[in-house]
Design a binder for these strands. Sequence first.
DNA 1: GCTCATTTCAAACAGGCGTTTCAATCAGTT
DNA 2: AACTGATTGAAACGCCTGTTTGAAATGAGC
Lengths: 220, 220
Amino acid sequence: MRAGETTASEDPKERILSAAGEVFAERGYEAATVRDICLAAGVNVAAVNYYFGDKQKLYNETVRQAHQRLVAQVPLSPWPEGTPARAKLRDFIGNVLERMLGFGRPRWQTRLMLREVLQPTDACRDLVEGYIHPQFQLLLSILGELADGQLEEPQLRQLAMSIIGQMFIYRAAGDVVGMLVPADEMASLHTPVPLADHITHSALAALGLAPPLTSSEPRA
Amino acid sequence: MRAGETTASEDPKERILSAAGEVFAERGYEAATVRDICLAAGVNVAAVNYYFGDKQKLYNETVRQAHQRLVAQVPLSPWPEGTPARAKLRDFIGNVLERMLGFGRPRWQTRLMLREVLQPTDACRDLVEGYIHPQFQLLLSILGELADGQLEEPQLRQLAMSIIGQMFIYRAAGDVVGMLVPADEMASLHTPVPLADHITHSALAALGLAPPLTSSEPRA
DNA sequence: GCTCATTTCAAACAGGCGTTTCAATCAGTT
DNA sequence: AACTGATTGAAACGCCTGTTTGAAATGAGC
């Protein structure tokens, strides 16, 4: 099949996938053009159809790959046995926020996922089943541990969705959030670490497991 | 200028705006075609350029009108003096959710706004200044009243964003939420009224103004 | 009934789109 | 060196896009 591939960035298929990720994430499926992707990848226009068949198949493959790389970054069993549930909650929220908002990995990966969440296509089902649903279940189990049998599953799901929503808005509507919050405050309070503290504290306080937000000194 | 307009739905300009709202909301700016809009409006393709100049100006006008109609539906001073702050909070959350998720008004109006929030264009600034920011300030004032001076402005803004996030996710990611929550539970718990109760109760509990969620009987 | 500005219509326009073509190039084998 | 199958490249193909055109239809004022 393949003839001579040297490094990953020399393989045209890789280069196209990477360029397509950026362009699709930035402009969306319709507005992204095959010509732009090929220009960014430094390959001929015909390469997309040669390697992937057509634009739609390239898109599906791009989403699939971004999704799988994202999954690979998430540790399967993050905590040693005996870790307190509230520590797990803080870790979970911090990790999700870091993955959503952090500047580490290429931004387009999560941005592409976000597009699928906002307006699902065929590629969305795999994303939910392979990535989002397991994370949701993990959060549910943490909350179940915290509630210690005092909340039913439906209430746990409501609470879980509340927590996810508080993180989600920063990723999905970050621009508007930036218009509502002063710039300096945006940089100091609405970033992964302080946000994770705030959201965790809110959830624990709502569960009666931490002092209310109005108390000036939250416990560590 | 105008020759003979009878009813609102007979005026071609109205019909185009209405059809454009649906199509733009459904497919987005790029994927929506002028021909589809005109077909839906029952007018000739040339009508868009005749009445609005070009596609971009039609889009701007569509967003502007949807935004203004939305604003017109929101009462300016909703509560009589002396209304308890927690009642205001419940009302506010309930109203926003009803406007976001309710089946009353044409769905495309809020969906179009949502598109602007997720990926702002020129039309977004007006939307934020004329609609979102005032609502945000209203929520801030309610929370300030509730906190009774025990929280600083930055903390109030964090809390406000948390509340908005919990509502926002249902509008922006409703499809995925529906994949994570059983269908019957979706219909019973994740609808405007029970959701408003849950979010209000969570916020009050986090502020120490209501019993924790784990307590089986929340106060009315 | 005529005038005249406004509005409608079918047809066409230029440009960009995804895709295809086919000759040129390349790498590996004989 | 010649053959072979995989890859690349420039150009072209239809098709669909937003937009324009110019003539036909419309309707109010006289």
